[in-house]
């Protein structure tokens, strides 16, 4: 693997993660618990898909075969997607979505905070811009974590259960392979161990405020780095890609 291949893969990880989480958030449209939350969740989806577009466009440019953002989003299959396992978890009820997003927002927040010093100018600029958005996302999910965790007994139990259930997908967020090693040496990527420490601090702080117990680390699922996903991803992308694939000659 050379630097270019590693960088393309790194961009796909970032782009795919935003795309899949964005696709999940868009499912909330017209289903929010209040109108204001419907607006907020659509807004999160908009930010995330915007982030995906930047990274997929860049991956296509690096590749140099003329593939556009849409070719990459609509033309790849499950085993070519490098999103986090956490991003594809189903929305479930509002508390499950908030819990998933909180764990994920804290991850992207610290990842982008570190990547804004990347030696790759595009990645650095993308991280700086996305950090502004993710700061708001993290605030949104953290505030809801606290409200639900310290709200009623029912809301507390629902969120505690959601965090317990999602915990086993958090290990995947921080795994590294030769792509990371190569790009860390180039000053492009960041050491996920450092991101993990910052993530731990944020998660601990918010869970404490929310009166939610942090689960013990036990078995962690893994798969992102090798594009091995849960069954959910295939359905997300089948739905997303259907029209584009049904009319291959069409432009929209």
């Amino acid at each position: 693997m050379d630097k270019k291949e590693a960088l393309i893969n790194y961009c796909l990880r970032l782009g795919d993660t935003s795309l899949i989480l964005g696709q999940r958030m868009a499912e909330w449209c017209s289903n929010g618990p209040i109108l204001e939350e419907d607006i907020a969740m659509t807004n999160l989806a908009l930010d995330l898909i915007g982030q995906a577009r930047t990274m997929l466009t860049y991956a296509g440019e690096l590749e140099g075969n003329g593939r556009s953002e849409d070719d990459l989003a609509y033309g790849r299959e499950e085993r070519e997607y490098y999103n986090t396992l956490l991003s594809e978890r189903p929305n479930g009820h509002f508390g499950e979505t908030i819990s998933r997003n909180f764990l994920h927002d804290a991850y992207l927040y610290h990842l982008y905070a570190a990547l804004k010093n990347s030696k790759d100018e595009m990645i650095a600029a993308h991280a700086a811009k996305s950090l502004k958005e993710v700061t708001y996302h993290l605030r949104h999910s953290s505030e809801w974590m606290v409200r639900l965790g310290d709200g009623t007994e029912e809301s507390h139990n629902k969120v505690q259960q959601a965090i317990n259930d999602l915990w086993e997908y958090t290990g995947d967020l921080f795994e590294m392979n030769e792509v990371d090693n190569l790009l860390i040496n180039e000053g492009i990527a960041v050491d996920m161990n450092t991101v993990k420490q910052a993530w731990d601090n944020t998660v601990n702080e918010v869970l404490t405020r929310a009166a939610i117990q942090r689960p013990e680390d036990a078995y962690m699922h893994s798969g992102r780095l090798n594009a091995v996903h849960s069954e959910y991803l295939g359905h997300i992308i089948a739905e997303m890609q259907f029209l584009h694939r049904a009319y291959p000659d069409a432009t929209w």
């Binding site: 795309l19 696709q23 868009a26 499912e27 908009l46 898909i49 915007g50 995906a52 577009r53 997929l56 953002e69 849409d70 989003a73 609509y74 739905e239 997303m240 259907f242 029209l243 584009h244 009319y247 069409a250 929209w252």
Partner: peptide, 10 residues
């Protein structure tokens, strides 16, 4: 979820 391009989705 089925918008045919990322631009049209946004």
């Amino acid at each position: 979820s089925r918008a045919p391009s990322l631009r049209s989705k946004v």
